[in-house]
């Protein structure tokens, strides 16, 4: 099972599925399937998406579920 945070990064940067799809050279449907977890991208596509968001690939894809944003923010708030 491959988890990803593409939807989160898209929302953060205000990029539509169509815009991301155009940027990485795939159809918008493919981005939708990726976000839903119904499709595992090739290494090339995964790296293109990571490069588009200017993050390391492991920040975008993982074999273990990503920690919820709320938990991260709560922990950061507690530490501050």
């Amino acid at each position: 099972m491959l988890y990803n945070r593409i939807a989160l990064f898209r929302a953060e940067r205000g990029i539509s599925r169509k815009a991301l799809a155009e940027a990485v050279g795939v159809n918008p449907q493919t981005i939708g399937y990726l976000e839903r977890g119904d499709y595992k991208p090739s290494l090339e596509l995964a790296m293109k998406i990571a490069a588009e968001f200017e993050v390391a690939i492991e920040h975008l894809f993982s074999f273990t579920p990503f920690e919820p944003v709320a938990a991260v923010l709560r922990r950061a708030g507690d530490a501050a």
């Binding site: 050279g25 795939v26 159809n27 449907q29 493919t30 399937y33 499709y39 991208p41 090739s42 596509l45």
Partner: peptide, 9 residues
């Protein structure tokens, strides 16, 4: 139409 890796799969 564009045939990407998902379509090919």
């Amino acid at each position: 139409e564009r045939v990407d890796e998902l379509d090919a799969q």
